[in-house]
Structures are given as C-alpha cells and as structure tokens.
Measured scan of single mutants.
Amino acid sequence: GLEHMADEEKLPPGWEKRMSRSSGRVYYFNHITNASQWERPSG
C-alpha cells in the first residue's frame, strides 16, 4: 500500500523500477542517462 509507494519514491532522480520481459526479473532504469542495472541505485 502506501509503504510501497514511499519506498518507490526513495529512488534517485531519473530512476524507475522495471521488469525484464525476458527473465521476469526486476531491474532499475534511469530515463535521464539511459542507464540500467540490476542493483538498486543509491544516492
């Protein structure tokens, strides 16, 4: 619920959580730099 939404908002600017269609794993994508990574971004 609300706790999940608050957790999402802690991601650094530009980052969003996405799911890989090929593997079904969650990864993180930065739409500003077009960077993507499996680890949760910090800072």
Rank of each mutant, 00 (worst) to 15 (best):
G14S: 03
D7C: 14
A35V: 15
E9A: 08
D7F: 06
Y28L: 00
H31E: 09
N30T: 00
I32M: 09
P13W: 08
E16R: 04
G14Q: 03
Q37K: 04
N34I: 04
F29P: 01
G1T: 10
M19S: 07
W38I: 07
S22C: 15
N30H: 04
G24I: 03
S22I: 14
M19E: 09
S36N: 04
R21Y: 06
N30G: 00
K10C: 14
L11V: 04
R25L: 10
N30C: 02
E9M: 08
V26R: 04
S36Y: 14
E3K: 08
N34V: 03
D7H: 09
S42Q: 15
A35P: 01
L11N: 02
N34G: 15
P12T: 01
S23K: 09
I32V: 09
E16Q: 05
R21Q: 12
W15R: 00
W15D: 00
A35M: 15
H4I: 14
K10Y: 10
E3T: 11
R21T: 12
I32N: 07
Y27E: 05
R25S: 05
L11S: 01
E39L: 05
H4W: 10
R21L: 13
P13Y: 10
Y28G: 00
S36P: 03
R18K: 09
W38R: 07
M19C: 15
Q37E: 02
R21F: 07
M19R: 13
P41I: 03
R21P: 14
G1I: 12
R18N: 02
N30Q: 02
G1D: 13
V26K: 04
I32R: 07
N34M: 10
Q37W: 03
W15I: 00
W15V: 01
S42L: 10
E39F: 06
H4P: 14
S42K: 09
V26G: 03
G14W: 04
S42P: 07
E8K: 08
E39D: 08
R18E: 01
A6L: 12
S42H: 11
R40M: 07
K10Q: 14
S36I: 15
P41S: 01
P13D: 09
P41C: 01
M5N: 13
L11G: 00
E9N: 09
E16K: 03
S22H: 12
Q37P: 00
P41T: 01
E9S: 08
K17N: 02
Y27H: 03
R25K: 13
F29W: 08
M5I: 12
I32S: 06
T33V: 03
G24P: 02
W15A: 00
R40Y: 09
R21G: 10
M19T: 15
S42W: 10
S23N: 12
P41M: 00
R18L: 05
H4N: 12
V26I: 12
R40I: 09
W38N: 06
Q37H: 04
N30S: 04
E9H: 07
M19G: 03
A6S: 13
E39H: 09
E3Y: 01
P41G: 01
E9V: 07
H31F: 14
P41D: 02
Y28A: 00
E3G: 12
H4A: 13
N34H: 15
G14K: 01
H4G: 12
A6H: 13
G43R: 09
P12G: 04
N30P: 00
P13C: 14
W38D: 05
N30M: 02
Y27G: 01
V26Y: 12
G43L: 13
H4E: 11
G1Q: 11
K17T: 06
H31Y: 14
Q37F: 03
N34T: 06
E9D: 13
P12Y: 02
S23I: 06
F29Y: 15
S23Y: 05
N34F: 08
R18V: 06
A6D: 14
R25A: 06
R25G: 04
M5K: 11
K17D: 01
N34Q: 13
K17Y: 03
Q37R: 04
K10H: 12
Y27N: 01
N34D: 04
R18A: 03
W15K: 00
Y28S: 00
G43I: 13
E39R: 04
Y27S: 03
E16D: 03
W38M: 06
G1R: 11
E39Y: 06
V26P: 08
N30I: 03
P41N: 02
G24M: 04
L11T: 02
G1H: 11
R40L: 07
R40C: 08
L11W: 02
W15E: 00
E3H: 11
E8Q: 10
Y28D: 00
R18Q: 03
M19N: 06
E39N: 06
M19P: 03
S42Y: 10
E9L: 07
N34R: 11
W38A: 05
R40S: 08
T33N: 05
Y28I: 00
G24E: 05
M19V: 15
G43D: 12
N34Y: 06
A6Q: 14
S42V: 12
G1A: 13
Y27M: 02
M5C: 15
A35L: 14
F29R: 03
R40A: 08
P13S: 07
E39V: 06
L2D: 14
T33R: 03
E16F: 05
P12Q: 02
Y28K: 00
S23R: 06
L11R: 00
A6F: 12
G24K: 08
N34L: 14
G14E: 04
H31M: 10
W38S: 06
P41E: 01
G14H: 08
S22T: 12
W38V: 06
R18D: 00
A6T: 12
M5D: 13
E39I: 05
A35I: 15
A6V: 13
H31G: 07
H4T: 13
P41Y: 01
S36M: 15
M5E: 11
N30Y: 04
L11H: 01
K10A: 15
S22E: 10
S36Q: 09
P12H: 01
